[in-house]
Computed example of a mutant assay.
Amino acid sequence: MSKSEFISEQHKENVEWSSKLDFYKDEIEILQKRLDEIAVKNNKKEVLTSIEYFQNQLIIHRNTIDEIQHGVNVSEDALVSEVKKNPVASDHRKTKYHQAEKEEIQILEKVFKELREEFNRFVSKWI
């Protein structure tokens, strides 16, 4: 049996996830600026190799965020469509829970935290 939840709760979760994803996008921009600062100040091969590694990681994370955001948008569009089809008592109806998006967000948060910690160790070494 699949898990379900109220449409209004799922909408609230979609909004929260979109905010988190926007936060991570902003943080990627901040990390990229820090990388640019380090690149200007250091031209050692070891530093440049690490900069390239982190740039690639940021690109991967940006793409992952975009993919997750797309999934959240699709979920939100389905909710809107469901409510438009039958707006009566929509706040009391349930829909299939979006477990895949929840798991993707959790994994993103874990992996991004690890990347941020690794990045901060790198920055502290070269600034």
Rank of each mutant, 00 (worst) to 15 (best):
R93C: 06
S90M: 10
N63W: 05
I38F: 08
F54K: 00
T49R: 07
A78G: 01
D26S: 12
L35Q: 00
R93E: 08
E82Q: 09
I38A: 03
V80E: 00
S90R: 04
D77L: 08
N43T: 11
V40A: 04
A89W: 09
S19L: 06
V47R: 02
W17K: 13
S19A: 13
K44G: 09
E52P: 00
I30N: 07
I60F: 05
H70Q: 10
L35K: 00
Y53V: 03
A39W: 10
E52A: 12
D22S: 15
I28P: 01
N42D: 04
T49I: 00
Q69M: 12
E27P: 03
W17C: 14
Y53P: 10
N73T: 10
L31I: 14
I60E: 06
E76I: 09
D36M: 11
K20Q: 14
I65W: 01
H92V: 13
F54H: 12
E82S: 07
S18G: 12
G71A: 02
S50H: 07
E52Y: 08
S19Y: 13
L31E: 03
A39V: 06
E27Y: 09
D36G: 10
R62P: 04
V83H: 01
D91I: 15
E67V: 11
N73A: 09
T49A: 08
L79A: 06
V83W: 02
F23E: 05
E52I: 12
K85F: 02
N56S: 12
Q55M: 08
E46L: 08
L35R: 01
D22H: 14
L48Y: 00
G71I: 07
E67K: 14
Q69R: 12
K85H: 03
E37R: 01
K84I: 00
N56C: 06
L79R: 02
L58E: 06
D36S: 12
N86Y: 02
R62E: 13
E76D: 11
D26Q: 08
A78K: 07
D66I: 10
I68T: 03
I28V: 05
I65G: 08
E37P: 04
L31G: 02
T64C: 13
Q55T: 01
Q69G: 13
R34D: 05
K33N: 14
V74D: 03
K25R: 05
N43F: 05
L35D: 10
H92L: 15
V83S: 04
H92Y: 15
T95I: 15
A78V: 05
L31M: 06
H92M: 15
Q69V: 07
E27Q: 10
K94Y: 10
R93K: 03
S75C: 13
P87F: 00
N86D: 01
P87E: 06
D26P: 07
K94D: 04
V74I: 04
Q32K: 12
F23R: 03
